[in-house]
Amino acid sequence: MTENFWLDSNVTADQRFSSYDYLTCAKDVGCAGEAVTRYLSRHPTDCDGDGRITCKDFGLTHLLGHARCHEPERRRDAEDTVFVTRFVQCLLDTLGLLSAGDSLEQDLDARCRLHSPGRIPPSVRRAVPAVTRQQE
């Protein structure tokens, strides 16, 4: 999370984090997770231009920002990052859980460790069924 990302998230509007500065928030899993959730909620972006906002778009928005995730060169560069490798594995694991009939709520946090371990933004949780529909 960059400082601009943190500022744009407006996470300090939440009473729990109102006194946090950028570095304090970035080091606190609860605050950082809430900042990501708020940022993604404020900027739902169809990064790949397929007409849908899916987990892939949330991941690209988180990594590149809502203004830059549309740029094909930036998306190509992102494919070589550790973040994208982990994110894709998380999506694959989640699809496996869904197809196996396991409870997404029980297992998603344990299997998916995005950028901030231990906290999967609710906006990403809601997007997972869209990814499942794409695979059918």
Rank of each mutant, 00 (worst) to 15 (best):
R52F: 10
R52V: 07
I53L: 03
I53V: 15
C55H: 00
C55F: 06
C55Y: 02
C55N: 00
K56M: 01
K56C: 00
K56T: 08
D57C: 08
F58K: 08
F58E: 11
F58Q: 07
G59S: 10
G59C: 10
G59E: 01
G59Y: 12
G59W: 08
G59P: 05
L60T: 05
L60K: 05
L60N: 03
L60M: 14
T61S: 08
H62Q: 15
H62W: 12
H62C: 04
L63P: 03
L63M: 13
L63E: 12
L63T: 06
L63C: 05
L63F: 14
L64R: 09
L64Q: 08
G65R: 04
H66E: 12
H66T: 03
A67I: 13
A67R: 15
A67W: 14
C69R: 03
H70C: 02
E71S: 13
E71W: 04
P72F: 00
P72M: 02
E73L: 12
E73H: 08
E73S: 14
E73P: 00
R74E: 14
R74M: 11
R74A: 13
R75K: 04
R75F: 00
R75N: 03
R76E: 13
D77T: 06
D77C: 05
A78Y: 01
E79Q: 15
D80G: 15
D80V: 02
D80C: 07
D80H: 13
D80Y: 11
V82D: 15
F83C: 09
